[in-house]
Amino acid sequence: MNLVRSELAKIRTTNVWWILILIGVPLWAAAIWSAWLADPADAGTTTEVLGETITAPSTPEIVANFYTSGQYIGLFFVFLLGVLLMTNEVQHNTATATFLFTPRRTAVVAAKIAAAALVGVLWWAAGTVVNIAVGAVFLADRWGGAHLDDPTVWAGIALNGVAFALWAVFGVGLGVLIRSQIGASLAAAAIYFIGPLAATFGLFLLVKVAGEGAKTIMDFLPYGATAAVTGGSDSMPYWLAALVLLGYGAVTSLLGTTLIRRRDIA
């Protein structure tokens, strides 16, 4: 617990967290506005796209989406924060002091994972409180009520918190694996923003060759697993998607910790 408190102090006493908040607030407001534009008449409707029937989300799913507004950019910020927890140490040469005071390097990485997960949950909680406060007013105007008595809505909100914690853990794992702050940050941006686009294009080609069953591959990629965690997939249960995300964090953390234990941090 002393190590976890130390890692939380490193986050609290540096500029990173409030810089992310200053950038995130206007982006969150844009996400709220985008969710607000959803038309109640479109809930549950079906359309034909390239010969495939697409069913629009139901009212509870759309409401849950409103209460989780800001998820897209929020997940990236906690992902990046997890990356910086380790790479900042190397960038500013504080890793040497950290490991001199605590020579158990595995314990240090575990503390960073715990601190990142906690910050991810706190970020989710703060955003959820604001989303519910704003959403209850907006939804009562256009959607006939806040719908907070619907268990589907609360399930979406709760599972969104799981996604925030797991992406933070994944970020720490990536930061431990790639010591360079610039390299790890660029890798995080590529995984989060470019990865889904590349995967979607590759999956489109694969479906043409292997058939519709190939679409399940997307659920095993980070952002596809996130969508499945929060209820956006019919082919993978949320608990399996959570394990997939946790697996990304575990694998990168274990590989990175193995390298850290064997190499000179300086």
Rank of each mutant, 00 (worst) to 15 (best):
Gly70Tyr: 01
Gln71His: 08
Gln71Thr: 06
Tyr72Gly: 12
Tyr72Ile: 08
Tyr72Cys: 00
Ile73Lys: 02
Ile73Glu: 04
Gly74Val: 14
Leu75Met: 14
Phe76Gln: 11
Val78Ala: 12
Val78His: 11
Val78Pro: 09
Phe79Glu: 11
Phe79Trp: 01
Phe79Met: 14
Leu80His: 00
Leu80Met: 14
Leu80Asn: 08
Leu80Pro: 00
Gly82Asn: 05
Leu84Asn: 01
Leu85Cys: 03
Met86Gly: 06
Asn88Cys: 03
Val90Cys: 00
Val90Gln: 04
Val90Asn: 02
Gln91Arg: 14
Gln91Pro: 00
Gln91Phe: 01
Asn93Phe: 08
Asn93Ile: 00
Asn93Met: 03
Asn93Gly: 03
Thr94Tyr: 10
Ala95Ile: 05
Ala97Ser: 15
Phe99Ser: 03
Phe99Val: 03
Phe99Asp: 06
Leu100Val: 15
Thr102Trp: 13
Thr102Gln: 15
Pro103Trp: 13
Arg104Gly: 00
Arg104Ser: 13
Arg105Thr: 01
Ala107Val: 02
Ala107His: 04
Ala107Asp: 09
Val108Ile: 14
Val109Trp: 06
Ala110Met: 11
Ala111Asp: 00
Ala111Trp: 06
Lys112Leu: 06
Ile113Val: 14
Ile113Phe: 09
Ala116Leu: 09
Leu118Gln: 05
Gly120Cys: 11
Val121Ser: 00
Leu122Met: 14
Trp123Ala: 11
Trp124Asn: 03
Ala126Asn: 07
Gly127His: 12
Val129Glu: 01
Val129Cys: 00
Val130Phe: 13
Val130Ser: 08
Asn131Ile: 00
Ile132Leu: 13
Gly135Leu: 11
Phe138Arg: 13
Asp141Ser: 15
Asp141Asn: 14
Arg142Thr: 15
Arg142His: 08
Trp143Pro: 01
Gly144Phe: 12
His147Val: 05
His147Cys: 01
His147Phe: 05
Asp149Trp: 12
Asp149Lys: 13
Pro151His: 11
Pro151Ile: 06
Pro151Asn: 10
Thr152Arg: 15
Val153Cys: 04
Trp154Arg: 07
Gly156Asp: 07
Gly156Asn: 10
Gly156Lys: 10
Ile157Asp: 01
Ala158Phe: 10
Ala158Gln: 05
Leu159Tyr: 10
Leu159Phe: 13
Asn160Ser: 14
Asn160Val: 07
Asn160His: 08
Asn160Glu: 02
Gly161Trp: 01
Val162His: 01
Ala163Trp: 02
Ala163Met: 04
Ala163Gln: 08
Phe164Glu: 06
Phe164Val: 02
Ala165His: 04
Leu166Gln: 03
Trp167Val: 03
Trp167Thr: 09
Ala168Ile: 01
Ala168Gln: 04
Val169Ser: 04
Val169Asp: 00
Phe170His: 08
Gly171Phe: 06
Gly171Pro: 06
Gly173Phe: 00
Gly173Ser: 04
Leu174Thr: 02
Val176Trp: 07
Val176Tyr: 08
Arg179Lys: 15
Arg179Ser: 10
Ser180Gly: 15
Gln181Asn: 13
Gln181Lys: 11
Ile182Cys: 01
Gly183Ser: 04
Leu186Ser: 10
Ala187Ser: 15
Ala188Met: 09
Ala188Lys: 03
Ala189Cys: 07
Ala189Gly: 07
Ala189Val: 01
Ala190Gln: 03
Ile191Thr: 06
Ile191Gln: 10
Ile191Tyr: 05
Tyr192Glu: 03
Phe193Arg: 07
Phe193Cys: 07
Ile194Leu: 15
Ile194Val: 15
Ile194Asn: 09
Leu197Glu: 05
Ala198Ser: 12
Phe201Leu: 14
